[in-house]
Design a protein around this nucleic acid. Structure first.
Length: 730
RNA sequence: GCCUUGGUGGCGGAAUUGGUAGACGCGCUGGAUUCAAAAUCCAGUUCCUUCGGGAGUGCGGGUUCGAUUCCCGCCCAAGGUACCA
């Protein structure tokens, strides 16, 4: 084996390896585009056609960690929703790999199926149009049709193909496979509902028991054979995993769940299959055709990739004459002069954004360490991130990649934990109201929103700062980008109107609003508290500033508690019972809310206490001083100022957080709602220590009860002490 | 399409274990103060009503003495869908 072959073999096992993968290639721009930048088969910028193209890329073998990424979820304190998203993304399924011989062709087609029990019902095979065997097996008379179909499929993105379940398309290759057991001829089709990137890129179609295969078979009039009893296959496929096997030779009469194991055994005996586990998770592509990104420290000696020695790191980005791809479509680093190591060419792709985001939090532990990313004692001290607050949009990207990266570093012995974030809270996304202009396809003419249905158009983001209401400042838009300089506009009533949509606030959607104006007008404390007051932390909502004045008013009112006629005035006399109750109710509520990350309700609790204390004219140090300490995390500037005025030393953040005193909160009576057939009719004030029987007696004697009952009978009486009284009459 | 989350007044939202739906704030209406305005303060504000009540937490069912809360079926919106991070 020569050095090159050795290197190839090793790459099959390494964490980082090179392989061919599909990318969105835009020939006109000479560059690879993100899915985000492709809309309906054309580039968002410029509207140029985009095709799927294979490209040699560095990848990371995250699939080697699939099982550990699943198991690790059980040890971390994340929301079930997020864990579920990751589980589904990893998508573990247990089934079998099956091999089909091909008639008049030496190769075999491997398929993965979670239902090997239904093998006798496999009436055709469907391959992804990109499957490597397609060209080899296609017969001469079918080659033209197959080539045309492949071309059509290449113009659709994977997402389009998955989303579009209504249009059924496919093409017969003219070739046949042989059923592993019956040796019957099984026609081989290609269809774009089979994705090259999942499994083996080929499925054995069992139309009777899989809905997509069923639709395909109906559409192309292919045979449908029932092998599991329980449904009516003349109407729809029967996908449930229960029922007796029929038309299945040695499996007939078995329950399908038992048949699954039996079939795998049989396939292993005859050498046409084996038990297998499949993951939806794919390896992560690690190369980008961009300038900004960490350069990959790899050079090529005689075409063999080799890593740079440690002493020659770090490798820094070279100077280039333009941050653009080269004329012949090479990445920007190919523009650099002398981008070589000892005369060997260096890698020209750069690392993706997720490379850095996967472990920045580890470097933060020891940011000034020049010799390693974090020293041993530092890692031991800081350990995992205790609480990570991040949006759920990162669920299957950053939050999975960083778990993978952490596990890899743990295996290498650099860190002592293999999960990065112990507890995670998904804060909701602040959304923005995006603005769209509508470009007529294939032109540089933009049509106002009200008229867009009269043309074939394509929506494009416009920066919200160009809008007054929904009207676009056309000049500002034209000056935005070179390509819009010559744009023309079809107006309605002399105006260009944009359409609007709520989306996550993001630079790429040009719907960002800056909070600086609010800080200038109201101060940072008001902005901070208003953001908390907006709603539950995990909920997404469009940014709006309507309620700001309420928080500003509250902070003024809170300040006024400490002042009389503009001068500081706090009394040392002891506070009354009601004032103590108001303050301690607030202390209790805020304390609980902080534990639950329910900041919107703690702001509400502050408002209630402040309103009550204002009403009571309570300016006693006994109640105000603990409230200052309580509010410090919510309105730190305000709290520090008042703390100083109260004569406190140092920062208020260094004092202890207040604890409520239960004895100030005890209630002696409850205003019971009294309902009849579930409808509240009147209120009744009763002592809280009154027992069920006594309550029943008092209620039944109440004249208002007698009036409600009237001629009717009391059927049932429900008394929940401390909560409710319900009388069922009829 | 698939996965995840959510839907309660004009608006943001509250409601412990199934127990008074609408806390708190915005907005709105009326009033006080003011030459006037801002600011501030007071009162009201889910809808309908024949003023007895009735309806009501996206829609349609169900369980229960009682459902925003639990169950079944739908609708709508947001996020993700592997090169935005």
């Amino acid at each position: 084996m020569n050095e090159k072959d050795k290197s190839e073999v090793l790459l099959n096992y390494r964490l980082a390896y090179r392989s061919e993968s599909n990318v969105n290639w835009c020939p006109a721009l000479g560059t690879v585009l993100a899915n985000d930048e492709v809309k309906d088969g054309v580039s968002e910028r410029g509207g140029h056609p985009v095709i799927q193209k294979k490209m040699m890329q560095w990848s990371m073998r995250i699939t080697a960690f699939a099982d550990r990424l699943l198991e690790g979820l059980d040890q971390i304190d994340w929301s079930n929703a997020l864990k579920e998203t990751q589980r589904n993304w990893i998508g573990k399924s247990v089934g079998a790999a099956l091999f089909f011989d091909i008639q008049d062709h030496p190769g075999q087609i491997e398929v993965f199926s979670t239902r090997p029990d239904t093998l006798f019902g496999a009436t055709f095979l469907t391959l992804a149009p990109e499957h490597e065997l397609v060209d080899a097996i296609t017969t001469a008379e079918r080659s033209e049709a197959v080539a045309a179909y492949k071309e059509k499929a290449a113009s659709r993105s994977e997402r389009d193909r998955m989303a579009d379940t209504k249009t059924i398309s496919g093409c017969f290759t003219g070739a046949y496979a042989l059923h592993p057991i019956t040796k019957a001829q099984v026609p081989i089709w290609i269809g774009d509902y089979v994705l090259a990137s999942y499994g083996t890129g080929a499925v054995m179609a069992v139309p009777a028991h899989d809905s997509r295969d069923y639709a395909f078979a109906k559409h192309f009039d292919l045979p449908i054979v029932e092998v599991v009893e329980g449904g009516d296959i003349t109407k729809e496929s029967y996908d449930a995993k229960s029922g007796k096997m029929v038309n299945s030779g040695f499996l007939d009469g078995m329950d399908c769940m038992n048949a699954k194991g039996k079939m795998i055994e049989h396939l292993e005996e005859i050498g046409y299959g084996k038990g297998a586990t499949q993951f939806k998770l794919r390896d992560a592509i690690f190369g980008r055709q961009r300038y900004w990104g960490e350069p990959i420290p790899v050079f090529y000696e005689n075409g063999i990739p080799k890593t740079l020695p440690l002493e020659d790191l770090p490798l820094t980005l070279p100077a280039v004459d333009a941050y653009l791809p080269t004329e012949d479509g090479e990445p920007p680093l190919a523009r650099a002069k002398n981008w070589t190591y000892n005369g060997c060419p260096l890698e020209t792709t750069t690392m993706p954004g997720w490379a850095g985001s996967s472990w920045y939090f580890l470097r933060y532990m020891d940011a000034h360490n020049e010799t390693e990313f974090a020293g041993e004692s530092t890692v031991a001290y800081w350990n995992q991130v205790d609480l990570y607050v991040g949006g759920s949009e990162h669920a299957t990207g950053h939050l999975l990649y960083s778990r993978f990266w952490t596990k890899a570093l743990y295996d290498l012995g650099y860190i002592t934990f293999d999960e990065p974030f112990k507890k995670l809270i998904n804060q909701g996304m602040i959304q923005g109201i995006s603005a769209f202009v509508h470009r007529i396809n294939g032109t540089n003419t933009f049509v106002s929103a009200g008229l867009k249905d009269q043309y074939e158009t394509h929506p494009l983001h416009a920066d919200v700062s160009f809008l007054q209401g929904d009207e676009l400042d056309v000049e500002a838009f034209k000056n935005w980008r070179e390509e819009y300089k010559s744009a023309e506009f079809i107006l309605e009533e002399g105006k260009y109107i944009c359409s609007r949509e709520v989306e996550k606030m993001s630079k790429s959607k040009f719907n960002v609003t800056n909070p600086d104006d609010i800080v200038i007008k109201y101060g940072a404390d008001v902005l901070r508290m208003y953001e908390m007051f907006l709603g539950p932390i995990e909920q997404s909502k469009p940014w709006n500033t309507q309620g700001l004045s309420g928080v500003a008013g509250f902070q003024r009112k809170f300040w006024k508690l400490f002042h009389r006629d503009g001068t500081f005035a706090v009394s040392d006399a002891s506070a009354g019972k009601n004032a103590l109750k108001a303050a301690h109710t607030c202390i209790k509520k805020v304390g609980e809310d902080i534990e639950n990350f329910s900041f919107n309700t703690s702001v509400s609790a502050f408002m209630i206490a402040t309103n009550e204390l204002t009403e009571l004219k309570a300016n006693n140090r006994e109640v105000l001083e603990p409230l200052v300490r309580l509010i410090a995390p919510f309105a730190p500037h305000l709290a520090e100022e008042l703390w100083e005025k109260l004569g406190g030393t140092g920062s208020v953040t260094h004092t202890t957080y207040p604890q409520h005193n239960e004895s100030y909160l005890i209630e002696s009576s409850k205003n019971y709602p009294v309902s009849f057939n579930g409808k509240v009719r009147f209120q009744l004030e009763l002592p809280l220590d009154m027992d069920k029987d006594a309550i029943e007696k008092v209620v039944l004697e109440d004249p208002r009860t007698l009036e409600q009952i009237g001629e009717k009978q009391v059927r049932k009486m429900i008394v929940v002490p401390g909560r409710i009284i319900n009388i069922v009459i009829g």
